[in-house]
Design a protein around this nucleic acid. Structure first.
Lengths: 218, 218
DNA sequence: CAACGCTTGTGAACACAAGCACAAGCGCGT
DNA sequence: ACGCGCTTGTGCTTGTGTTCACAAGCGTTG
């Protein structure tokens, strides 16, 4: 077993950035990459790249850089992207529909297993190659397809109930697009994406002329 | 009175959570709220709520709590939500369309000013009450409507170019839904929402049974 | 084969955020 | 008027993340 040194949260959040950059480099047949180039591609600082990667193991070569293929493999494994993950989307409104059609998911190994909606009128409609099914089918689908990840794209008022159903069905990873704050058991991971919230944060920065985010290197 | 001591980033990211909770409380005609209740509604810790709010000023009453209406007003002002912000969306694919129809924006004072797309075939199509216009119209629209916020919902390959156009047109706040890492001048604020990235982080947690955190007795 | 240029990996310093614990202060009931 | 219960505001401690700076180590070249 690899040493069980815990990987910091902040690092985990950046691994996908490196992953994406490495996929591009790999397509360009770049054999190796330095922490500095990788940093630029990922929009972060070079020291941070090195420290982050050092949590995974010692995969670089001093004087040379990191082997693109190998590093890609290691990050891929660490993120659990070696396999395809089945995903269900609950709540097929505008956003749910857009997510269902989003090619970025399948491109990265997330296969949409089913689309669910509580509205009986929607059941039977098709979106792309999938047909919308009633939310009550969640249990069957989750079991038969061993679904690991659930996406909630319902209105806030329905979100908590949906989350509870997901948890009951054994889903332990939830991506919540509703504005609701979900209460779940501690062994369930929830990530929240709130679009209005993002705009409000931008609005704050606009008012306080302290604009600064990941700009370019000073 | 708080004389503009800088508000920490972490606090700014939570203000919209409090804001939302307060809007609900206000609709329920709750006169006051304690840091503890507010914490529960926002899904954070009570001490954090108090510390966050103390950066805005001294708006609570000991022994009582915070006046809902007043606190709402203060946060609203701090976030710059007193006015409506015009927003343009560039890239009207699945996601752009969903964003255009998303009621959560207008509900919170973000008015969609225009929809733009580089594809000439899309120009003229209508989405809701708006008609898609060519990206080249950005300059005119930005000026005539004094647009402050730009949303990028294009493929990654087009994102940097769009960002540069936005910056040229005076937009200083960008919400980027593309996977690209944008390089912008330091006075421009960029926030990135990457859907595949969120799933990858969930996938990581799924692999590393990250539960069992505060289960042990010391 | 030794010296040199480059790049990693990491200890140590620093900066920021979280959370505790408690004094200060308000309002109510007696 | 006064004490009591409740809740804020905040100094301090602890934890986490970022950045610097440099020794260690690889590959190449003369």
């Amino acid at each position: 077993m690899s040493r069980a040194a815990r990987i910091p949260d902040a690092t985990v959040e950046r691994l996908p950035l490196y992953y994406r950059a490495l996929v591009e480099l790999d397509q360009l047949k770049a054999p190796t990459v330095s922490s500095e180039s990788l940093a630029e591609l990922a929009g972060v600082n070079a020291a941070k790249v090195r420290k982050d990667l050092s949590y995974l193991g010692t995969y670089g070569t001093r004087g040379v850089g990191y082997n693109v293929g190998n590093l890609l493999h290691q990050i891929s494994r660490e993120l659990g992207l070696s396999q395809d993950w089945p995903v269900v989307i609950v709540g097929i409104g505008n956003l749910g529909r857009a997510l269902a059609s989003y090619s970025g998911f399948s491109a990265r190994g997330f296969r949409i297993s089913a689309l669910l909606d509580a509205d009986p009128d929607k059941a039977g409609q098709s979106v792309g190659k999938l047909t919308i099914r009633p939310t009550s089918d969640l249990g069957v689908i989750a079991k038969s397809d061993d679904v690991a990840i659930g996406i909630i794209a319902t209105p806030g008022s329905a979100a908590q109930a949906v989350a509870e159903q997901m948890v009951t069905c054994g889903i332990r990873s939830i991506l919540n697009f509703s504005p609701a704050v979900l209460v779940v058991p501690p062994d369930v991971t929830v990530r929240r994406v709130d679009l209005a919230l993002e705009l409000q944060i931008l609005s704050f920065h606009h008012g306080h002329n302290d604009h600064a985010e990941h700009g370019l290197t000073p």
